[in-house]
């Protein structure tokens, strides 16, 4: 059984896992970081999105062994140690960008990647970016509003 080592939310982690362990299972079952969700398990819904080496990716479609030596960021890594929410988390709360909340970790990790490369996305750019994230509650309107709100907050305008 190979030993997998990666940094997750800034902390070094390591575990002996079978070769067929998915990254999302490493995160949830071995590290007990259950904020990353498994929705469809077929790489369509985006509930499992995390950042691998700074880019958003679906952790249900990545093997843990492929992430050896990588830097992984999950939803648990966004808020400040004192509990202060990340501006995107605060914006989803403020704009009511969620109802059941199951898709929200993936929505936030996905759109964080968007805002890191495109700090002021337009409405169509946000909707296009969200192709890989499915929400069955909100109808997306408030998710788009939340991302716009966070963009304003993060760019200081």
């Amino acid at each position: 059984m190979p030993t997998v080592t990666m940094r997750v939310n800034g902390a070094q982690t390591s575990a002996d896992v079978p070769e067929n362990t998915l990254l999302v299972d490493y995160i949830r079952e071995h590290l007990r970081l259950t904020g990353t969700h498994v929705g469809c398990d077929t790489s369509q819904c985006g509930a499992c999105v995390v950042h691998i080496d700074g880019k958003s990716a679906k952790s249900c479609t990545r093997l843990a062994t492929q992430c050896e030596g990588s830097e992984v960021l999950t939803i648990e890594g966004l808020a400040a140690p004192n509990g202060t929410l990340h501006p995107l988390q605060a914006a989803f709360k403020e704009a009511h960008g969620l109802q059941c909340g199951f898709c929200t970790p993936g929505m936030i990790m996905s759109t964080l990647d968007l805002l890191q490369t495109n700090p002021k996305p337009t409405d169509p750019e946000i909707r296009s970016w969200l192709k890989g994230n499915i929400c069955r509650c909100t109808g997306y309107q408030n998710i788009v509003k939340a991302v716009e709100l966070a963009a304003d907050e993060m760019s200081g305008s």
Partner: peptide
């Protein structure tokens, strides 16, 4: 192709 997360990998 696909969506942003698929395109990243």
């Amino acid at each position: 192709i696909g969506d942003p997360q698929v395109r990243n990998i």
